[in-house]
Design a binder for these strands. Structure first.
Lengths: 165, 165
DNA sequence: CTATGGCTTTGAGCGCGCGCGAACGCAAAC
DNA sequence: GTTTGCGTTCGCGCGCGCTCAAAGCCATAG
């Protein structure tokens, strides 16, 4: 279990086409099973990223991380939750620049809630469009796979070589 | 219509959650409404890419393009179809390297059909996984949006600032 | 009690995938 | 004639993260 990242666990939980209930979302963010103060290696393992990337995020101002008496980073659950959020946003295509902006809004206090909401709404639309694009590409790919398989006639042979689709 | 790319047209055709029938796929690849020999600008417009990128693909060995007596590129429907295919694969995440390999297989003749099929199957799985990832991120984003909106209680307020999710 | 290996720290620099920009010339079209 | 659009080449730029180097602390092993 230690080597699984959150997304992998989530996908296993959900299955190929299961419903995405609120409960699933909750389970996703249920971090009770991880130790409270985490090392950089543990967090990296949890989020399926390298320590390098975590330090990179920190330099980029996305998180602040406390240190122990040896200067080693100590991640509390608060920070880990933020990193989970950030990772998810990155994975769904939000650029670093936008993440930095979002975090700056969070740090700026409650007045920025509307703007944060706007960012989330816009990002939601981007994800939706991306899903539609991919669904289309998936359909096209499956179509091509199907015609490849059943290629017997001249037309189908043409499809093969002619790179139709 | 000239400024629309294929994907945009396709998405408009499909709508937000319509079924992806074979007919839709056919309509997608119905290039009858484009002139037979196309210039680089026309193809770029059709595929929503720049002439630069088209020349780049050509240099990369993905297509061979004939020239007219002025040295200008002349794209026949065959080449355009290949470019449509390549663009779709790129958009759905296939790296240039794999596209180059695929094209080399196409050029190598019918013996490579099984390997091409393998590539397509693998790519199909990648797209599927990507869609599931995005679906999950979408659900998480929508969940966060919902909690942002209805933040009245103390727990919800904590969600706001604590970057939960 | 060293030592060997394994983790951490910082900083600077590199690399990849993908494509764009700039500079320049030539032919056609207004 | 000047503007437009295409041609080529060289090099750059971006986003993102990794590599490399030099050094410190800890634990287990001899």
């Amino acid at each position: 279990m230690a080597t699984d990242d959150l997304m992998t666990r989530a996908l296993e939980t959900v299955g190929d086409d299961g419903p995405l209930s609120v409960e699933v979302i909750h389970r996703l963010t249920d971090l009770a099973d991880v130790p409270e103060p985490m090392t950089i290696a543990e967090v990296a393992d949890l989020l399926d990223m390298t320590p390098h990337t975590l330090r990179y995020y920190e330099r980029a101002g996305l998180v602040e991380v406390a240190r122990d008496r040896y200067g080693h980073r100590v991640y509390d659950s608060e920070t880990v939750r933020r990193l989970v959020f950030l990772t998810r946003m990155r994975l769904s295509g939000m650029p670093m620049r936008d993440l930095q902006h979002y975090i700056s809004l969070v740090d700026a206090g409650q007045d920025t809630v509307p703007e944060r909401l706007d960012m989330l709404l816009e990002h939601r639309d981007i994800i939706r469009r991306r899903i539609r694009e991919l669904t289309l590409s998936l359909a096209a790919t499956e179509y091509k796979i199907a015609t490849y398989g059943g290629s017997t006639g001249p037309d189908d042979a043409a499809l093969d070589t002619a790179t139709e689709l």
